[in-house]
Design a binder for these strands. Structure first.
Lengths: 223, 223
DNA sequence: GCAGAACCGTACCGTACGGTACTTCAGAGG
DNA sequence: CCTCTGAAGTACCGTACGGTACGGTTCTGC
């Protein structure tokens, strides 16, 4: 949730500043508060510049998504050899991070915005924003989780034939209907750690191999 | 998905007719296509009548949700004693029905509408529509599933201490992130039956008791 | 110091919406 | 036949938005 506008690749610092204000307006007042005039006023720029930079209101929204996605970086630190306990720990950390990201103000506002624009009436580029959001916003998260469960499989702690299906199961166990409920205005859940723990318990029950956490380390691949 | 307007409790037949047209407009053109003038034209009524009947645009939207919810009835036929196979069958049927409902045009349109209105800028009644939608639209579904898994527990086929948590797990396993993805404009998933089967497999793996002669262990791999 | 570009602030235009008022029409009841 | 009630159709109003145009100002390169 940084507010820095240092090294964004796609936009100039000034433009990132404007995008930051746009996100602020969107978070605070919803889509209806994000008007070109309002943004120009809030960001102290001219509407003409907005249209020169982003071409269109659609372009502005897409730029906001890209800008926000560029701020969310997931650290993929691995290297250390996975034990059963370490795998569980990493999975729970992933679950907590996922829940935190999904319940964040900016994420919810952007998802509401994209969903509102994804109706059948939005012409050919109707779900363009939706596509953008799910790709930009999800890729990092997906990669992190996939790498994690793949590593778990590689060391023999997890067992599945379809990594994609396993990941979707993991996602469903963690998120359930919380995302939609929050999008509908329900206040965020009380205890994310508890939810994460339960989800990972279930996931491990489904996909872990039979070796008990204490007797592991004596596998065929032990060196 | 009936179009009959027979015995709605809250509104007159004429009003239900208008609400039906409103839903049609919303499904076909998204929120922006649902204007008071457009609805009056499409439903051959006057705007004045709209405001007399529903008071407000918000009231119209709420009436649409109530109207649609009144159309979705879930049959709760039980009575027959549950066997393991019967329980699985009912769970899979529930999963398929849930996925079908969530991917329905009207459901998606109404969810988009409510989500679009659920931003922080909508004052005190901001998430009013969202609350309405989740209550009216979900209660039937929730009750059906809860009754099902409760029955499963009562006859000793399922085992859990927190029915609510078990139901949320079931929901997450079935829906995963499909709902949000569809709300974002992604086309509905290809094979709901497959998804339902996998979800129920996982759910039963988690919550069934050991006393079942389950040599089947339906493989959730390729078909 | 100067020319040119970039940009801010603002005024402006066309449009479309929510909501209201007014006129017209159809039917029910005496 | 007359009247009254309710609803359709339409015209209208205020507002607000997206997008454009223009004058004034700051920054940059030479």
């Amino acid at each position: 949730m940084r507010t820095e506008t240092a090294d964004m690749p796609d936009f100039s610092p000034r433009q990132n500043e404007v995008l930051e204000q746009a996100l602020r307006l969107l978070v605070e007042g919803g889509e209806k508060a994000l008007t070109t005039s309002g943004l120009a006023r809030a960001a102290s720029c001219s509407k003409e510049s907005l249209y020169k930079w982003f071409g269109d209101r659609e372009g502005l929204l897409a730029a906001m998504i890209a800008h926000q996605a560029a701020k969310v970086r997931t650290f993929e630190r691995s290297g250390e050899r996975l034990s059963a306990e370490l795998l569980r720990e990493h999975l729970e950390l992933f679950a907590r991070d996922l829940l935190e990201v999904l319940s964040g103000d900016v994420s919810l506002a952007l998802n509401r915005l994209a969903i509102g624009q994804s109706g059948p009436g939005a012409g050919p580029n109707g779900s363009k924003l939706g596509k953008l959001l799910v790709e930009h916003g999800r890729r990092q998260i997906d990669r992190r989780a996939m790498a994690l469960i793949d590593a778990g499989k590689r060391v023999g702690l997890l067992r599945f034939d379809n990594a994609d299906a396993a990941y979707h199961t993991l996602y469903g166990l963690i998120v359930s209907d919380l995302h939609v409920r929050m999008l509908l205005g329900e206040p965020g859940l009380k205890d994310t750690a508890r939810q994460a723990e339960r989800a990972i318990d279930a996931f491990l029950s489904l996909y872990r191999t039979e070796k008990q956490p204490l007797e592991v380390l004596r596998t065929s691949s032990a060196r």
